[in-house]
Design a protein around this nucleic acid. Structure first.
Length: 518
RNA sequence: GGUCCGUUCGUCUAGGGGUUAGGACGUAUCCCUUUCACGGAUAAAACACGGGUUCGAUUCCCGUACGGACUACCA
């Protein structure tokens, strides 16, 4: 039955890049919708024309695409039967509902200017309180409740700017069942007469999201915990509009908190602490300031999504690695933790590591090849660009990478001779006796028919033993000659990969370096 | 300030009136090993505090503390 279909929306406002908390909200909504064979919708809440940021809407679309959280209706994803999905394009829709509320006595016109409001706030502040436009104060303000009808008509006829405010009935209780928090009860005395329609004719979030959720037949509304305090006002609006039975189930998600200190994760934290808070890079259109994104940092979208899913939610089992279909299957609001979650960048890296290492070798080869082509001016037929070379490199590098780009940065010595040597380590491990070792080793290597670890390794080790040298010392220096570094991928695997010519040349270079620097 | 929400290892969390309070990340140690990783093993590490209720509370209730959100013609 169409009317019973589960429908969720993600409704960000395009005031900047979508941050990871927003992505998580979208993800949970998406998971729940898919689990129930329902719809997932992207609606753009651009009712504040002052906060419009160019590019933000496209960023949201790109981010969802990258994450694989694909709406089946909405801005950027094709219209369903509830188009348009941009609130600015739905502007004419909202006013009638605000007026309906005036008609039923649940809202009123208010003519107070910004200056009037400012004075009231100042007055309240001086007595140590904050001003609230509500049943206590509304009769002292300029509105259609405090003024005679004739005056109100006058103001309206003269095109005096006005807003429409919700008339909240005091001393009542509003209750609702939150999918995360359970039964929540508020007293209406704490809810103010919220503006529903602004003087520019645009609805506020409060009115717009309710009208659209109703019209779009949204069944579940998932949003951040910061909305909890205004939830009673929203419940009231549904009641006053007579839509109570169509009200979606609300789920208020715990916030994502800063890894250090306290407070909710904000835009600034990312680059301050060295991790992204955004899925994709974002360049501020005004300041040109760049905020880094997970994608550009080398995170795989699956890892990013998996990490996000587990931040504040668990499956009830000890499983931590989930594919999207598994998440869809396992998700439940019941298992969302109520407290805010501090984001841990280290754990995020671990997730990426799991996904990167699980990638097929062929995929890793492709990435490595691209990086290598970019860094070195190899000719097209260079052996180091071949599958057989790269696949061996990948196998050597794979157990030590967290990011795809680590293969290149950690394994650069598989593609170029060392530029520098770890002289500290060399100092410790080198001794003059090792010259004799190479005097024997090099000719033996040169005459070697099959240059393979299975042959080279015993050859080298036996020689070290025969000459009574210390295994650790000789091997360490050999490694440094070949890679420049005292640690890295398997030595004999590396030698096999580089081949006879390159290996012996690097050894000779190393010996030369020793001679000239001692 | 007011209102609301929350509080289990450093972090993400499981659990729930009687448990050796479990897992993961990170950390440390050991094993493997030519190094560093990987892998394996082990360890340190938590129920905020105070009152109840109860034979028994980390679990239920109430306070306190602490943290967070909100308190716009922003969302």
């Amino acid at each position: 039955m169409e009317s019973n279909k589960v429908r969720l929306r993600f409704a960000p406002s395009p005031t900047g890049p979508l941050h990871m908390g927003g992505v998580r909200t979208a993800l949970y909504s998406y998971l729940f919708a898919k689990q129930h064979g329902g719809d997932f919708i992207l609606r753009i809440e651009d009712t504040d024309q002052n906060r419009f940021v160019p590019g933000a809407e496209q960023y949201i679309i790109d981010a969802l695409n990258w994450c694989g959280i694909i709406p089946n209706e909405g801005v950027g994803f094709g219209d369903g039967k509830h188009a348009p999905y941009r609130q600015s394009e739905r502007k004419p829709l909202y006013k009638q509902y605000a007026e309906q509320l005036i008609g039923s006595g649940h809202a009123y016109y208010a003519f107070d200017t910004a200056a009037d409001m400012e004075i009231k706030r100042k007055q309240a502040e001086s007595t140590g309180k904050s001003f609230m436009y509500d049943a206590q104060t509304r009769m002292q303000m300029q509105n259609s409740l405090s003024q005679p009808a004739s005056e109100v008509n006058n103001l309206l006829n003269n095109n005096t700017p006005y807003v429409i405010r919700l008339k909240v009935m005091p001393d009542n209780e509003v209750a609702f069942d939150d999918l995360v928090r359970g039964h929540v009860v508020f007293n209406t005395n704490i809810v103010d007469d919220k503006v529903l329609l602004k003087s520019d004719g645009m609805p506020t979030y409060h009115l717009a999201h309710i009208v659209d959720d109703y019209l779009m037949q949204i069944t579940h509304a998932v949003r951040g915990e910061e909305w909890l305090p205004s939830a009673p006002a929203h419940i009231l609006i549904y009641k006053y509009l007579g839509w109570e039975s169509k009200m979606p189930h609300y789920a208020h998600l715990p916030l994502l908190l800063k890894p250090d200190g306290h407070g909710k994760l904000s835009k600034r934290d990312g680059d301050r602490l060295g991790f992204p808070v955004f899925p994709l890079n974002w360049t501020d259109p005004i300041t040109a300031e760049i905020s880094s994104g997970y994608r550009e940092r080398g995170y795989l979208p699956q890892a990013f999504v998996n990490m996000l899913a587990l931040l504040g939610w668990n499956s009830g089992t000890t499983q931590e690695l989930f594919t999207m279909p598994q998440l869809i299957n396992a998700f439940s609001f019941k298992h969302i933790h109520k407290a805010g979650a501090k984001f841990d960048p280290e754990k995020a890296k671990w997730f990426n590591e799991q996904y990167v290492r699980a990638l097929p070798d062929a995929t890793l080869v492709d990435h490595l090849r691209n990086d290598v082509i970019e860094s070195y001016k190899y000719s097209g037929d260079d052996v180091r660009l071949t599958d057989s070379y790269l696949i061996k490199a990948v196998q050597l590098l794979k157990p030590r990478i967290q990011f795809l780009h680590d293969m290149h940065s950690m394994g650069h010595y598989l593609f170029e001779p060392p530029q520098t040597y770890d002289t500290d380590a060399l100092q410790k491990k080198w001794n003059e006796n090792q010259f004799a070792f190479y005097d024997v080793l090099l000719p033996q290597l040169n005459t070697q028919q099959s240059f393979d670890a299975t042959v080279i390794e015993p050859l080298v080790k036996n020689l070290i033993k025969e000459m009574g040298l210390k295994m650790g010392d000789v091997i360490s220096c050999l490694r440094i000659f070949i890679s420049g570094k005292s640690s890295g991928v398997d030595l004999f695997g590396m030698i096999t990969l580089l081949g006879k010519t390159e290996t012996t040349q690097r050894i000779n270079n190393g010996l030369q370096f020793i001679k000239t620097n001692n």
